[in-house]
Design a protein around this nucleic acid. Sequence first.
RNA 1: GGGCGAUUAGCUCAGCUGGAUAGAGCGUUGGCCUCCGGAGCCAAAGGUCACAGGUUCGAAUCCUGUAUCGCUCGCCA
Length: 567
Amino acid sequence: MKWILESLAETLSPLVSMPAEAVQKLFRVEANAERGDLALPCFPFAKALKQKPDAIAQTLAESIAALDAVEQAEAAGPFLNIRLKLSAIAEHVFTSCLDAPDSFGQNQTGEGKTVVLDFSSPNIAKPIAFHHIRSTVIGNALANLHEACGWKTVRINYLGDWGTTQGKLISAFRRFGSADALQADPIKHLLEIYVRFHQEAETQPELLDEAKALFKNLEDGDASCETLWTQFRELSIREFRRIYDRMGIRFDHYDGESLYRHQLDETVEEVTQKAGAKIDQGALIVDLSDKKLPPCLLRKDDGATLYATRDIAATKDRHERFSFDRSLYVVASQQTVYFQQLFEVLKRMDFDYATRCEHIPFGMLQLADKTMSTRKGQVIFLEDVLDKAVALSREAIAEKNPNLNNADQVAEQVGIGAIIFGDLVAHRKNDVTFEWSRILDFKGKTGVYVQYTHARCRSMLRKGEMDADLKDSAQFTRPEEKEVLKGIAQFPDMVQKATDSCDPSLIANHLVNLCQSFNSLFSMGTEYRFLDDNPALRSTRLSLVLAVATTLKNGLQLLGLATPEEM
RNA sequence: GGGCGAUUAGCUCAGCUGGAUAGAGCGUUGGCCUCCGGAGCCAAAGGUCACAGGUUCGAAUCCUGUAUCGCUCGCCA
């Protein structure tokens, strides 16, 4: 809708003595179609013009009504309601969407800029738990959105592959491990021995000391420790890749914390010099009390480094390698304070890029039955959720479309799409409660609904003959059609907004709304048919179907969902 | 105790920097397949926007306080 808002604001700007940009922001896309398509509250002009808002609305209505794209402009008290010409919106959709379907929704506002995204970031040697889906799916969507806005993206999976846990794994493997079992199902085996390690450590606390010592050996470059660790890491990544492939997600770099293991002394040294660090209670800290933040710990009292030390090194490294304009950390909101500390330390080191780093927090995944949340071995695995969703959609296909020939592939696309969409449709920062019944619900505001609507569009396009030259915006007459066209025309605005605010749920919800207004066109029975006998009418209506399909497809792709032709 | 966030329909939530009669989905109830895909559509019921003050032309939205819940507050990440 930006195209029309710009020209409206240009016209009004001199009349209300306010910059066009400011006027543009005052416009609201009207939800209540009976009032019109756009609304402009006139209160903000009253002071400058020394007139009553009602009177202003009245005068503005007259000058707006003269514009080409405007069908009607009238004052309703202090509000200026504008009704756009259906044909004007349709013409705009024809050129913006139908003439360049593949790039519809995209823009070039990020041209020449680079964004680094740190997301997913599971720990090696453990299965990806369901709660990792949030970072994974949000990060992927944000990367796609930035690309659509012309940004160069760098997708980094910042693996948890360094720390005392690695010592525990080495100890556990030497005691209980089996090379065959490791090769057969690496993650499963590593999890088993890790759980067993903790069980045994309850009665033999010396195991923990052993693990600590082994991690120290690893840090010091002990060859046999290094060999094992490398193996754990590579096998883990292989497994992770398999799941990411299923979800259609890729990374440019698997740069874990271990990448910085050789430059930590150097990092500590630099932080100490530039930001000031001191020993307190045996640990090396940067005091941030003047910012009312807890201290940032660089070294434990035993000299070992911490998460923050590695993150400081990582940020610096990423800036040197990619010279980013924006660096996004898609990490749970629990770590909000931690990121405030991190960015504050970077600022004190005079790194100007500190201000270009942003924490993109998201709410926790809570389990309905809280007893499940803490106990080890009782986590829900991401792949189990995917498998269940795929199995369920496979059943649905068997029932509803038994002759579908690539049924297994479609079941995968629909099942996994449902899980991804389900996570993205909710606002990012809210906590979400895990319930099987809800996550496997394929009705209503779901990915399945959007995919289904898309497939339905494709089906019609296969059935009806459409001559693009016969399409004619004057053939659109219904308010329902106008709603659909408006939804399409707004899509590019939503892409921009979702990118700027790092909020993929805007796209998810917009797609659902578009589906709802489109599907309502089916409720008129014989009164309204897309596959009309009249060729001009049919071609016009099918062009609308094509525009809807294009928007849904591009939108779903941005969110990371596949768009099957049939399902 | 300090900091941050939340509280809107039976349930899960939208509601953007204040704007007109507070909206969806699920669930419930009732309709719609001789016809474009019923994983769909139409309709009904359902609200003291946690509570109390304040700011103004106007408050679910902003401010203050209270209550409840969640996260967090030095050697995990």
